[in-house]
């Protein structure tokens, strides 16, 4: 198994090695040691490999990931898995702000808590947070699913487009144009599928969640809603 020790090698060495991999590579299991909160680790991967990072990471870990599985045995900094296209990013600890920002595909799993703006402008990814999420999460979120097993902070789903938000715990407040909606069979099926993907379908029932979506009142400007702009 290829191993990169970031006490001996640089972030550049790591990313260069990962970028050199062809999609048919046999070197599919990578281990990264001593990340010590460094930024931009395992970014821009474009191959179906698994990278396990043993420790806490800084900003933008696994940014723009395609097809890779990145596992972080620790906490992740700002913008973890930002603009992910596909693949899977699993953070065993907490994530900082803007986790999964603008992510277009793939699955981000956070075992701990996510702080502010989780899933901001997300564009199609699935994000599963087992703990709580911070304020302004799913701000301007466009597509995909945000699933939260714990509680959500203030202004959830502000200026939401079509992302589906499922929260099992309490929601401190909803942002402009975000409303609770009845969970229909379609949403329940989608939620079940995401829980299944995240490997927690056996422990977590879809019925325990409440479903939030866009009221679509900001889709066309109306002077009587001006205070929400």
């Amino acid at each position: 198994m290829p191993e990169v020790d970031l006490r001996q090698q640089t972030v550049r060495d790591l990313n260069e090695a990962l970028h050199r991999l062809s999609r048919q590579t046999n070197e599919t299991d990578w281990q990264v040691l001593h990340p010590n909160g460094q930024h931009s680790l395992a970014v821009g991967i474009d191959a179906p490999v698994t990278v396990r990072i043993k420790g806490h990471v800084g900003y933008y870990c696994a940014g723009m990931n395609k097809d890779a599985t990145v596992i972080i045995d620790g906490n992740a900094g700002v913008g973890c898995a930002e603009n992910m296209m596909s693949g899977r990013v699993h953070v065993k600890g907490d994530v900082s702000q803007a986790a999964g920002a603008t992510a277009q595909g793939g699955l981000l799993i956070v075992d701990g808590n996510a702080s502010a703006r989780c899933g901001i402008s997300m564009k199609g990814a699935d994000i599963v947070v087992k703990g709580n999420i911070g304020p302004m999460s799913a701000f301007m979120a466009q597509a995909g699913n945000l699933v939260v097993l714990g509680d959500a902070g203030e202004a959830l789903g502000d200026s939401l487009y079509e992302t589906r938000i499922f929260v099992r715990g309490a929601v401190k407040s909803l942002g402009a144009d975000c409303v609770e909606k009845p969970m229909g069979e379609e949403e329940k099926a989608i939620l079940s599928q995401v829980l299944e993907l995240a490997g927690i379908a056996d422990d977590v029932r879809p019925e325990a969640f409440r479903f939030y979506g866009s009221a679509r009142r900001l889709y066309h400007f109306n002077v009587d809603h001006a205070e929400e702009y």
Binding site: G37, G77, G93, D94
Partner: peptide, 18 residues
């Protein structure tokens, strides 16, 4: 950033939060 906390003793077992 978390990097700043890395030099601290017992940081691995600290309660890290935002």
């Amino acid at each position: 950033e978390y990097r700043a906390l890395v030099p601290l003793p017992d940081i691995e077992s600290a309660r890290v939060f935002e």
